[in-house]
Amino acid sequence: MSFPYGADYEGTDYGVSKGASIPGMAGRTEDAVTEQLKAGVGDGHWGGLGGGLIAMILSFIAGAITAILGGFATVIDAILGTVNNDFVAAMPIINDHSESITDLQEAIEQLILQGAAIKFVSNNTYTPAVGVVSVDVILIGAGAGGSSGSYDALNSGTRSGGGGGGGGETHVNVPASLLPVDGGGNFLPIQIVVGAGGDGAAGDQGVGQGGGHTYFGPEVGSAAQPWLMAGGGTGGSWGNIPPVSPGGIGMIPGGDGGPGGGPGGAPGAGEHSTSAFDLHGGGGGGGGGYAQAYGGAGSGGGGGISPGGSPGNPGQPPSTIVATGGGGGGGGPSGNLGGADGAYPAGGGGGSACSIAGATTGGDGGDGVVYVIERMA
Rank of each mutant, 00 (worst) to 15 (best):
P242Q: 08
G195K: 04
I140G: 09
P218Y: 06
G325M: 01
V194I: 01
I94K: 03
L228M: 03
I118D: 08
D96N: 12
G342P: 00
G145W: 04
T12P: 03
G281A: 02
I54D: 13
N173D: 05
E271C: 09
A142P: 08
L37N: 13
G203I: 13
G115P: 07
L58S: 15
G309A: 01
S334Q: 07
P314K: 04
A129Q: 03
V33R: 15
H213V: 08
G281H: 00
I112M: 12
G232F: 06
G19F: 13
P189Y: 02
G289T: 12
F216R: 03
T360V: 14
P92S: 05
A116T: 03
T74Y: 09
G52N: 14
A196Q: 01
E219Y: 12
E30H: 13
Q105G: 12
G183R: 09
L53M: 11
G212L: 05
I118H: 06
G342W: 00
T34K: 15
I93V: 15
L104A: 11
G247A: 06
P318W: 00
Y215V: 01
I373S: 06
P23H: 13
V137E: 01
A291P: 02
M56T: 11
P128T: 14
I57T: 13
Q292N: 15
N313K: 08
A223R: 15
I356Q: 09
A340C: 00
R375I: 00
G27E: 04
G366M: 10
V244L: 01
G42K: 03
A64S: 11
P263Y: 10
A201H: 07
V135F: 06
I57R: 14
A297V: 03
G327C: 01
G265P: 10
S319T: 05
S147Q: 06
G51T: 14
G248I: 05
A269W: 09
Y14P: 02
G326Q: 07
I94C: 09
G42H: 07
V135P: 03
V132Q: 11
P259A: 10
G40Y: 08
G328N: 14
P189H: 01
G262V: 06
G115E: 02
L228H: 00
G161P: 05
H171R: 02
T360Q: 13
S98C: 11
G286D: 12
A117H: 03
V207H: 13
Q105W: 10
A291R: 04
T234P: 14
G349M: 04
G48P: 02
L139Q: 12
A293I: 10
V220P: 10
F87A: 12
G302K: 05
V75L: 10
T214M: 01
G166R: 10
L111N: 11
G312L: 00
